[in-house]
Write a protein that binds this DNA or RNA. Sequence first.
DNA 1: TGTTTAGTACTAATTAATTAGTATGCGACC
DNA 2: GGTCGCATACTAATTAATTAGTACTAAACA
Lengths: 126, 126
Amino acid sequence: MRPPSTTLTGQELEIMKIVWERGSSTVREVYETMLERRKVAYTTVMTMMKILEQKKYLKKTQVERAHVYRAAQPKGKVIGAMVREFVNRVFNGSAEPLLVHLVEEGDLTREDLEEIARLRKPGRHT
Amino acid sequence: MRPPSTTLTGQELEIMKIVWERGSSTVREVYETMLERRKVAYTTVMTMMKILEQKKYLKKTQVERAHVYRAAQPKGKVIGAMVREFVNRVFNGSAEPLLVHLVEEGDLTREDLEEIARLRKPGRHT
DNA sequence: TGTTTAGTACTAATTAATTAGTATGCGACC
DNA sequence: GGTCGCATACTAATTAATTAGTACTAAACA
């Protein structure tokens, strides 16, 4: 009845961020990192990582006794999909109103915009 | 255990969009509009709108036999909060990487950026 | 060797989100 | 006046997301 999320959910993203950052991680390493921010059980992290593996966001390999997880998809691709999903859901697919929001709330300065515009136009043409 | 969403959830947003668009709406009007997109039960819409009222996104007034709902908060404010929450969650609060994504995926053209930059700089100074 | 340690597997509980059925009331219409 | 349509109230079921406990296993070590 309730459709599963098509992108990473909140806690899933937290874990993926850590794995992307570290390159590869055991459950324990992710667990320790998460503990720095909030209280969480080791098995909770393990369960989440197993789910992420089922969802094809993580790959695991056996190393000694432990599972070592690595990202199955590059960060840019996954985050990009999240951005697209957000733009679709909230702004019906058009990015420009999102940009207006960012600017109006002062999250972006004119300098930011111009810098990005240069990126888009590496030297001369469009 | 599982914290409630601090922003509008998917279906809640769908309903709010309709109410913002229409100014005010009965359950039936929202229901009819939603039916154009997908199958949904009248009572489902009603339940959602009641929840939205509890969450202070909608206000209701009795008109004749029916409840007439209006937005309790302006669209810009609510959407702005969603944008902020997204930027916080996905990009740790910095909007610039989001912008890079939008540009790289071709959702924004250089022209869009420059146009917005002008907005930010209404005539002369910063 | 026996015990502590660190790992996974399995199980399960809770909650928000989503969806919708059933009951009930009231006004309109025949 | 009876019935039909439309409104709400109340109830409930399902599922994804989140959290974590318990059992079991094997390595490490004293």
